[in-house]
């Protein structure tokens, strides 16, 4: 079997720790093994009240969560690829991202998203120092590091060092602009189209666009 820890009787998977024969392998804690936080309880109580009062049904709530969880960076990648091949679309994207995404059949939600364009003069990177604001409906749920205190505090203070740790070296002649999402907008980075991608069609271009390059911590994949 693989490294799955769901059956400790067949202990033939190699990993770096020992435990005496016959003693149970330590379990991965279940969800219920850590106490609920104040805000988790508050969220559950409010959700139950909304359902009880008929503001929305349990099924609507479940469907909304399922919809949010189903979003992936692929939608954002399609938007970026279209912007690379269609300058008029790019202009509409920079003017109104939610509306431009709708042209491609993507429902980016009602919170306005602002697309910030990387150019030879400026590299953009996004963060939310207050919490974890992120263009979820366009590029999916944020990675854990995006919500970490380390990323949030350091990327506004020493963005070039943080980018370098992601393997992204920004030359001194190119300005770095950090966007701190504090309020009503969400941000998405429109990366520059990579050199050597001239012959690629729209679908192949979208394959070069990753989640992290739409956050601005990396560049698109090389073709």
């Amino acid at each position: 079997m693989s490294g799955d820890h769901d059956d400790d009787r067949h202990h033939d998977h190699g990993h770096g720790h020992d435990h005496p024969p016959g003693q149970k392998h330590p379990f991965q804690p279940d969800l219920e093994d850590s106490p609920l936080s104040h805000y988790q309880l508050l969220q559950m109580a409010v959700a139950e009240l909304m359902i009880e009062k008929g503001v929305f049904t349990g099924e609507e709530f479940r469907r909304t969560l399922e919809d949010i969880d189903s979003r992936t960076p692929a939608a954002g990648a399609r938007v970026v690829a279209r912007a690379w091949i269609d300058p008029a679309f790019k202009a509409r994207l920079l003017a109104d991202t939610n509306k431009a995404a709708a042209e491609l059949g993507i429902d980016a939600g009602t919170i306005p998203i602002l697309t910030v364009e990387n150019t030879p003069d400026t590299h953009n990177v996004i963060v939310c120092t207050l919490c974890s604001c992120y263009p979820r409906l366009l590029i999916g749920l944020p990675p854990d590091w995006y919500k970490s205190r380390e990323y949030r505090s350091r990327v506004v203070r020493e963005p070039r060092q943080v980018l370098a740790e992601f393997g992204t070296a920004i030359p001194d002649g190119m300005a770095v602009t950090v966007h701190d999402s504090t309020a009503e907008l969400r941000y998405m980075v429109l990366p520059m189209r990579p050199a050597g991608s001239e012959g690629l069609d729209e679908a192949a271009l979208a394959e070069l666009v990753t989640r992290d390059c739409m956050v601005g911590v990396t560049l698109p994949k090389a073709p």
Binding site: R160, A175, V176, T177, V178, H179, T182, A183, L185
Partner: peptide, 13 residues
Amino acid sequence: AGPTADTLETEIY
């Protein structure tokens, strides 16, 4: 430590 051209943009009420 970076170039003087580096900026930060945010939303303020």
